[in-house]
Structure formats: structure tokens, C-alpha cells
Design a binder for these strands. Structure first.
Lengths: 192, 192
DNA sequence: ACCTGAACACCGTTCAAGT
DNA sequence: ACCTGAACACCGTTCAAGT
């Protein structure tokens, strides 16, 4: 995990994520990262202005990843809206038990957003991007206008909740298709 | 906000919540609370073992409040399951713009849970209690067994997400009844 | 019982000096 | 360009002494 090669911002960021996922939010501290990488604090402060800058960079990185995941699923041809949405939900909720990974990242990022406007912007961008994707899919399923948007923001909220519950399998839905069908299916006895 | 009366754990907790809601998670620090209350740190450490103990006490308090809210709504007579569930969702998502109140509390609590098993227990208890309530309502709406539980955990996840998005009205559903009806209504052409 | 004030410890941050 | 090592500052924590 450490090494003798020269350091880059990316390696600091990657290490910070590893520690966050393994040991929780308390662990993102300068000297903790330094002992992990067998470096001194001066090295850290050459790459980052301060701890907040590292966190901000972690969020930017996370934002890139979620963005490209969204794009790759949006461009997957030949999938029904239902399947695309379902895939998003499976990614958010189906993790191995005890895997606090994305759970911790998601929670930490929303927490940091409360103290840092730059983080808040990245997070809002990511949320809006996913919301737009969901809205598109629900429109494609036959809903239009405000109702599609309303349902999409509900699904988006559910995704946020599921990401944070991913470590607790007892609290996650056993039948994701069921709820997604319920949200996408046209009203009984109404327009297609 | 401060005063000359003797201090109690409850006043520390209340002040900590006020600061959290007004100024974000960074503000829960011993000397920040002390200047707010014109007291010295020794006073804080007479009431609490350390900062983690304050946070833990905040979570216990929050847990009491959410618990009693749930009970009072569960015992409201003459309301349909639909109305009871809707009321929960309105409470979670309809806050005045810029009111980061419950938003910050919800996020902070989930963040602290990552570092403190006692917090994690309180949080899991609260989640499970709400999940049980939702499951009951969905059963009452005509769904049975595993499917009711699955739908309830989806609704619970949505509630968590909505609590955290409450500060961003652009991202919350405009038609909550619509999504709730979709989740509670029996399948088109199936058992009641 | 509850609080003050000073001491100490830890860790974030800076910086001059090294390669 | 990238890092070390030591210094400093901030804030969490302790504790003897006060009321």
C-alpha cells in the first residue's frame, strides 16, 4: 500500500479512500495517512493545502467515478428503462455484508458538504445528474412532465438511502424489481 | 441561549444541536460550545467524559424524539395506512428552504455511527422501528409477508434520502401522494 | 454538586533546509 | 519537484483547587 516511488495527489487520495472504507471517518487525519505511507507531514502539505483540500479532492474523484458509471449505463444499448433503473439500484444496494465501502464514502461526503461549499457543489452536481438520468428513464416508461420528475426525485432519494444502508442487509429490499415496477408502471387504467 | 443557571447535560445537548443546525458539523467542539455558553471546558468535562460522549448523548436524545414521533403517529386513530405513511414523508421532506436542521442532524448521526458502536446501535434501532411501522402499514394496505417488508425497506431508504435532501427543494418530489399510492396500491388486477 | 484555571497532549499547519 | 524535521498553534483532556 505504501512504497518508495514519488508521491502524487492521486496516491494520497486512493490511500485516504482505503482507510476511510476500512476504518471509518475518524481515520482521515494527516499523520495517520503519513504513517500509512511512511512519509512525513511536510510531504502531505506539499500536495495539499490542508486536510479540507484532501477531502475536497476525494469528493471530486468520487464525482468523476459516479459520473462515468452513470454515463456508461446510460449508453448501454438495448436496455429497457426498467432494466437501467434496476441496475442502478442493484449497484447501490447489493454489496457483500460488512462491506462498508460505498456506504462510508457516501455518508462522509454528505457530512463534509455541510462544512465545505466546494464539496456541496460537487455533491449537488452528482445528485442532479443522477436525477436527470432517472427522469429520462421514467419519461421513457410513459410518464410525462412534473410527475416523471417527482417520481425520479423519489427514486433518487431511495438510492441515497440504500447507499447508506448497504452495510445492513436486513434493512434493504429483497425485491427491487417489485418496487421499481411499481414506480415505473403506468397507473392502472390510464394512458400508456 | 446561554445563562447563569447551573448547567445540565440537557442544556449542553440542546446547545450542541442548535449549533449543528446553524453552522454545520465542524462546530461541535468543546471550546466552541463553551464560549457559546460562557463556561469553561472543565464544566463540559464534568458533564461528559469526552466529545464522543456528547455526540452519543445527542444521538440518544434524537432517538427518543423520533421514537415518540413515530408512536404518536402510530396511535393516531382513524387514519388510513396511506395517510400515516404520507405524514411521515411530509415530515421528512417538507422543510422551509435553507432549513438545514434535520438534514444536518440526520447526516451527522450517520457519520458518527461510523466511528462509534453505541451510536450505531441507536441508529439501527431507530431505523428498524420505522421499518417495522412502515411494514405494518403496507400489510394493512393489502400486501403480505416478504413483499410488504421489501416495500417498507424501500420506503425507509427513501425517507433517509429525503431527510438528507430536505435542504434542496429542487431535488424533492412535488407529488408525494403519487409515489406513495404507487407503492401501497395493490397490483393492477390482483388480490385486494 | 458544579465550575474555574492552568497544565499537558495531540495533531494540523508552516517553513527552512535538504535532495 | 518533492521531501524531511523541527517548530508552532489549536484544541481535546485532565486535574487540583475553588464555591
Amino acid at each position: 500500500m505504501s512504497g518508495k516511488q514519488r508521491m502524487t495527489r492521486e496516491r494520497w487520495i486512493a490511500t485516504a479512500f482505503e482507510l476511510l472504507l476500512l476504518e471509518g471517518p475518524k481515520v482521515i487525519r494527516v499523520d495517520r495517512l503519513c504513517t500509512e505511507l511512511t512519509l512525513t507531514k511536510g510531504s502531505f502539505y506539499w500536495h495539499f493545502k490542508d486536510l479540507a483540500a484532501l477531502k475536497s479532492a476525494m469528493v471530486s474523484h468520487w464525482r468523476q467515478v459516479t459520473r462515468s458509471e452513470l454515463i456508461s449505463s446510460a449508453t448501454a444499448d438495448g436496455q429497457s428503462p426498467r432494466d437501467l433503473v434496476l441496475k442502478l439500484f442493484e449497484a447501490a444496494s447489493l454489496r457483500q455484508p460488512g462491506d462498508h465501502a460505498a456506504t462510508m464514502a457516501s455518508i462522509a461526503i454528505r457530512h463534509w458538504a455541510g462544512a465545505d461549499p466546494a464539496v456541496r457543489r460537487d455533491l449537488a452536481d452528482a445528485d442532479n445528474e443522477r436525477l436527470a438520468f432517472l427522469t429520462t428513464q421514467i419519461r421513457a416508461a410513459g410518464w410525462s412532465g412534473a410527475e416523471a420528475r417527482s417520481r425520479a426525485s423519489f427514486l433518487n432519494a431511495a438510492l441515497i438511502g440504500l447507499e447508506q444502508l448497504a452495510g445492513e442487509p436486513a434493512q434493504t429490499p429483497t425485491n427491487l424489481s417489485g418496487v421499481i415496477d411499481a414506480m415505473l408502471a403506468p397507473k392502472a387504467g390510464s394512458q400508456a
